[in-house]
Each structure stands twice: as C-alpha cells, then as structure tokens.
C-alpha cells in the first residue's frame, strides 16, 4: 500500500513539466526515503535524478519499496487536470497495475481521482558517486534559462568556462559568435539573485544547448540553479525543490577528438 499526500501539489505538476520532454517512460521508486526517479534520455547522453523526501509530504505511507513505471506524457496529462492550489495524493495498492492521483481543492469542495495504467519499464540505473568538482556556479535560474535560450538562437553548443574572472557562456554559429560573462555578485540584498562562483581550478567544457534548454524547464521549481563542472565528469545542473529535495540533470560533454 502506498499513499503520498502532497499539500503543495503544484510542485509535482512542475516536476513533470520539467522532465517529460527529456524522458518518455520512467520508473518512480518509492521507499522510506522518499519518492524518486532516475532516468536517461533515449540517446543516453543526459540523465535526470529526482528526489522528493518523505518528510516533505504531509502524509507518507509506503509499506514496502515499490517501483512504478509511468509514461510521463500520460502522467503529465493527468496532473494538468489538478489545480495549482490542489492537494495531490498518489495512491497504489500492492501488486496493482494502476496508480491513482487524487486532487483535492484547498476548500475541499471538489475531489477528483484519476487512475492511470502503469507499465513495465526495463530501466538502467546508473551509480552516481559523490564527486569533487572543479567549479560550482550558483546563479538565478531565470538568468541561466535566458542565457541558454539566447545562445541557442546563435549556435547549437555552449562552451561553459569558469575562471577567476567569472563564468563565461560562449557559442558560435553560421551567423556569428556570442559570449556572455557572469561575474560573482553577492552584494545584492536578495540571496536568490546572487551569482556565486566556487572555483578549485579553471574548467572549460562544451555541451549541447538542446539539452541545456530542456533542463531549464525546471526553472519554475527554484529561484537558483547550481551548475557543477569538472573536466572528468558530466555537468550537473541542479534545482533544489523547497524543503523537499532536488531535481538534478546530468549531461555528458562534447569532446574534441
């Protein structure tokens, strides 16, 4: 038996909108720790890892570990039927091939339940070790989204370079080149508007903008985004989900042979 009641149902709606274009089908894993997902895109270049910790739910009952295969497009269709202020409860019985999403309006005057068919998904799970990164950049998520969008109108790839001068996003295409430099900026009153650069050593990596733009669908989940870079690892683009967990996107770089 599984029953997860999320008062801030809009969080789940936003999570789905941020992953459904990257991944078609995925297993949601439910355990005492929380509700999680790890899935790769079809070309095995990008990976999304989601965690919504059990403590973040108003009610969290998960009698035994359960993995539920869902088509994310279908799940998104169902969650779009929930109001932004609705409380969402996810329910499943042991051995059942369906999951139920229950939507309650804040005033309790409307209660809806949507039952969705589950599917068997053979998913590959990757072990992602804790790592030291050469540089970690924290910046406003809207600013990062804007940069990715702007650069993708010029080129297909972005070079992200971190030096003591700041973080530089560069692209080149048929019509020309573009460089955007963001410097560390902690002097603002609002911490979510600051840009903080922690650099152990300079790093410069190239990534496909198509994926970066897809990751920025998670922008509504968090004011800040953290970009962790190392020349030996895929980049991690992380959006913290207030008091609940995170959504992390991993992207393998483009490498010059």
């Amino acid at each position: 038996m599984l029953e997860l009641r999320l008062v801030q149902g809009s969080l789940l709606k936003k999570v789905l909108e941020s992953v459904k274009d990257l991944v078609t089908d995925a297993n949601f894993d439910c355990s005492a720790t929380g509700f999680s997902l790890q899935a790769m895109d079809s070309s095995h270049v990008a990976l999304v890892a989601l965690l919504l910790r059990s403590e973040g739910f108003e009610h969290y009952r998960c009698d035994r570990n359960l993995s539920m295969g869902m088509n994310l497009n279908n799940m998104s269709k169902m969650l779009k039927c929930a109001g932004n202020d609705d409380i969402i409860t996810i329910k499943a019985d042991d051995g059942s091939d369906t999951v139920t999403f229950m939507f309650e309006s804040p005033t309790q005057d409307k209660i809806a339940d949507f039952e969705m068919k589950l599917m068997d998904i053979d998913s590959e799970h990757l072990g992602i070790p804790e790592a030291e990164y050469h540089a970690i950049v924290r910046m406003p998520s809207a600013e990062f989204a804007r940069i990715c969008k702007d650069l993708s109108s010029i080129g297909d790839t972005v070079v992200i370079s971190v030096t003591k001068e700041g973080v530089k996003f560069s692209t080149r295409g048929d019509i020309g080149t573009a460089n955007i430099v963001c410097r560390q900026n902690t002097s603002v009153d609002k911490p979510e508007e600051s840009t903080i650069i922690e650099m152990n050593e300079p790093v410069s990596l190239t990534f496909a903008l198509r994926y970066m733009n897809s990751f920025t669908k998670a922008t509504p989940l968090a004011n800040s985004v953290t970009i962790s870079l190392s020349s030996e690892l895929p980049v991690v683009v992380e959006y913290k989900i207030a008091e609940m967990g995170y959504i992390r996107f991993y992207l393998a770089p483009k490498i010059e042979d």
Binding site: A46, A208, I255
Partner: peptide, 14 residues
Amino acid sequence: YIRQAMLAGYFMQV
C-alpha cells in the same frame, strides 16, 4: 571533430 560523450563513459550501471 567534436563528438558527443555518453553517460556510460562516466557512470557505471548498477
């Protein structure tokens, strides 16, 4: 020539 690396080159399957 620039090629796209795969995640499998960095992370092991578990």
